[in-house]
Design a binder for these strands. Structure first.
Lengths: 342, 342
DNA sequence: CTGAAAGCGCTTACAG
DNA sequence: CTGAAAGCGCTTACAG
């Protein structure tokens, strides 16, 4: 079997009977070549199945074609981040870009130096030394969720309106008979959980409800969540609705609710702040906020592309909003009312 | 702030007072340059902080520096695969290689053509059309777990001895008083679950135990697992030990066991075939097989590096075994015996 | 409107 | 043992 040498620009130029330069101009839609020639070159390229060599292109343009994606360290446990990463890869492939996932380096070790054209940081948190190193070289940065103020300005930012979704959930609780909503939040800071917590506080203030906030440890999440649930349900004037922010652990809320004789979906409404496939199949199915992680990832990469293509750096950062929505299921049906189903 | 032009080989050569070629030879430890010169060049490179430009190198060598990693479609839900991907990235970065995660293309759409130097396919299954397309160009392939026979031969294969781990678990069950072990396996074929199922069958045959195998759907995993558990515990001559293969759903086994008045870790032993952080923190903590996914991923990439570096393609495929081990926890302690703890 | 030439940063045959 | 030169595949000033 003959090894088929990849088709080069020279091959196309030869077949079209023009110079390499002319072929390049024709193919990149650059002015300075007649319509007839352009057509001939295009036909030749199509016939030979020509695809420009990205390595050569990058060398010429002093680019790498690589985008570093920096994920939180808990990424390996959370389906959300994997989905988001796949969204970024989807979009990157279409643009001829490559994605490099940056694993957290073993503690203290310096980052392996990576040449890249840009950095996408998802859920950046303050005081992250890795992030600091990463941002130092001055590459363009796009952040998924807000970049903490202590770091330098971003070229782009993709966000979702978590506060609005949280309010929608709380209103829904109220409509379905709940008077004492609570939230269980991860101890660890993140812009995302912070935003929801704040929205919850505001809602409580507006509705004259007592704040019921329980922080849980990410290590030992199960036990921690169970303890939090017990606390919320065991006290006098107990919670009658719970939003659990930590992915997965909402299942523990369901389990421990039974101990207190509560029936989820009737006298205890429960919702998760992050949807995941499992929540559709539990008994009862669990209401959750669908964050559309794949779309979110894709949008981050799209903004990065725009930033990279932008010849006029302009002033402000590019901002983009990814819509999210609450998926209502049985766990918030409420007592004796027809539940919305999805 | 002056934009610092990256240091090139020419800069190093100039500082060392030699030609570019000589500098290249010195830096790549190639014979044909005096020890003195080599030292001078090295010093110059160190002083300037020279790092070869991978793009130029790749262009020269007609490589891309890219490895495509193909993961199963359920990858986004399973922490295992994300960990494995990070392991591959760890190793790749050290070798100056880049990893591209290949997302499943929207149904039917052709793969975006990706130039790459090699392909790593994790848990390949028979009859996968994407895999077929991916293998068509003839790039070197390394598989994580066995490549089904219908596909072309691999250049490397990384595996673990799942059968041995399963036997260890079953022996452990027996030592701790279980007489009727069962397994819950995913419906979907995979070499991994197949290997464990076979080991289980063999063990049953050797020990004169009745086979208790329940298949569960991946869609609707929770309900499906609960139903399977009920079946195993509700029948006459019920199971007294269960291995759950599906990541995460072992928690459903625990939950439903309570319905039948069983106490996990005492009169019902339970273990997961894939460890995950949550299993350490449940009550009781759950025995599981630690697959060392990060090491597994790293090893896949290491084999790929060897394959790529190999000038003499040789005959057989490179095979590598990644050790796995059973982590004993409270869920298999058994009645009235001191449990091993981890 | 088009062609010939230079150059991105590297490696490697080829002369000296 | 070392230097000068060619070339990987592309793009883009620069002449014609």
């Amino acid at each position: 079997m003959p090894v088929k040498r990849p088709v080069t620009l020279q091959d196309v130029a030869d077949l079209a009977g023009v110079s390499r330069g002319a072929a390049s101009f024709a193919l990149t839609d650059r002015t300075g070549v007649s319509a007839a020639t352009r057509e001939r070159v295009r036909a030749a390229a199509a016939e030979l199945g020509y695809r420009p060599n990205p390595t050569a292109r990058n060398l010429r343009a002093a680019r790498t074609g690589i985008i570093v994606v920096y994920l939180p360290s808990i990424a390996t446990t959370l389906g959300y981040y994997t989905e988001a990463a796949f969204g970024m890869v989807d979009e990157a492939l279409e643009a001829g870009l490559l994605v490099t996932l940056l694993p957290r380096p073993a503690n203290g070790r310096p980052l392996p130096r990576i040449d890249a054209d840009g950095i996408i940081a998802i859920d950046p948190v303050p005081g992250d030394p890795v992030l600091e190193q990463l941002l130092a070289p001055g590459l363009p940065v796009v952040s998924g969720e807000a970049m903490p103020a202590e770091y330098r300005a971003v070229a782009g930012e993709v966000r979702s309106d978590h506060a609005a979704a949280a309010r929608e959930l709380l209103d829904h609780f109220a409509e379905h008979g709940a008077r004492a909503p609570a939230i269980i939040v991860p101890e660890m800071f993140s812009g995302w959980s912070d935003e929801i917590t704040q929205a919850y506080r505001d809602w409580c203030a507006e509705h004259g409800a007592r704040e019921r906030i329980e922080a849980v440890a990410v290590e030992g999440l199960t036990d921690s969540t169970i303890a939090a649930t017990r606390k919320l349900l065991g006290e006098t004037d107990p919670a009658d609705a719970i939003i659990s922010l930590t992915e997965g652990s909402v299942l523990n809320v369901i389990t421990s609710a039974t101990e207190y004789g509560r029936t989820v979906g009737e006298d205890l409404l429960v919702a998760a702040a992050v949807d995941s496939p499992a929540l559709r199949y539990t008994e009862p199915s669990i209401t959750a906020i669908d964050l559309h992680p794949r779309t979110f990832g894709r949008e981050c990469m799209r903004v990065m592309r725009e930033v990279l293509d932008d010849r006029s750096p302009g002033e402000g950062a590019r901002r983009r909003d990814v819509p999210i929505d609450v998926v209502f299921r049985d766990s918030t049906r409420g007592r004796g009312r027809a539940g919305e189903r999805v």
